[in-house]
């Protein structure tokens, strides 16, 4: 079970406002987060990962306190090790596909498995600049999964994928999420694109963040 209750001041074109999100999310559930641009969806994911500190709140993941502003607890991003798929992918330009995964994990079997899922087995020696947008996005997802995270935070993770690749990847990802017992948060502008995830009874919830 993941319990989140946070308040964070965010700056928008309309001035400063407060992002307030609270909720309980079951382990191994998938939550799709949607809402208008500038509502704070990405900020919310970054607060969970520990990149941004909220003014107030607490985050508890499977009975471990990741954040508690009252007790002044805030685990570093390195200790939270939440898998994070960035909107801009944040791939390392100096590393090849395989090096990205080797940087994250020493488990070669797992790396091989991930490469198969992402259909990147033939591109292991390529650096991100030689990959297409869709391949880069898949690598970003694989890298986030390489550490077998308890919590996976994905910011617009399927935006560059064609429908066929998207469906195939989502099917594989669902299996991985079940295998790893990962709790997933997915920010998406297009909530319908995630319908496939809910199709066979995965626990799916929605979180709407508005202004």
């Amino acid at each position: 079970m993941i319990s989140i209750n946070i308040e964070k001041k965010i700056k928008t074109y309309q001035g400063q406002r407060i992002l307030k999100v609270s909720g309980e999310f079951k382990s191994e559930s998938i939550t799709k987060i949607h809402g208008p641009s500038g509502a704070g969806k990405s900020t919310f994911l970054k607060v969970i990962a520990g990149f941004i500190q909220p003014e107030q709140g607490n985050i508890t993941v499977n009975n471990n306190a990741w954040l508690d502003t009252v007790s002044k607890i805030s685990l570093s991003p390195q200790k939270r090790m939440a898998g994070f798929v960035f909107q801009d992918y944040a791939l390392f330009p100096n590393m090849t596909v395989k090096e990205h995964l080797e940087y994250a994990t020493a488990d070669n079997e797992w790396i091989k498995h991930l490469l198969e899922i992402g259909k990147l087995e033939t591109l292991t020696t390529h650096k991100p600049q030689y990959l297409s947008g869709g391949q880069q996005q898949r690598l970003a997802i694989l890298r986030a999964l390489a550490t077998k995270p308890q919590v996976l935070l994905m910011d617009e993770p399927f935006s560059a994928l064609d429908p066929e690749n998207k469906l195939a990847l989502i099917t594989e990802l669902k299996l991985i999420f079940q295998e790893l017992k990962t709790t997933v948060f997915i920010v998406s502008h297009n909530p319908q694109e995630l319908d496939g995830i809910a199709a066979d009874g995965a626990i799916l919830s929605e979180l709407y963040i508005n202004n």
Binding site: G83, F92, P93, N94, Y103, T147
Partner: peptide, 27 residues
């Protein structure tokens, strides 16, 4: 360098020093 490069490295459990040597410096 985009701040997300460091953040991606931190979320993989890498220290600031490892991030500097393996990610920031080569780029």
């Amino acid at each position: 360098l985009p701040v997300s490069l460091s953040q991606a490295s931190y979320s993989l459990g890498k220290s600031r020093w490892q991030t500097f040597i393996r990610v920031l410096l080569p780029n």
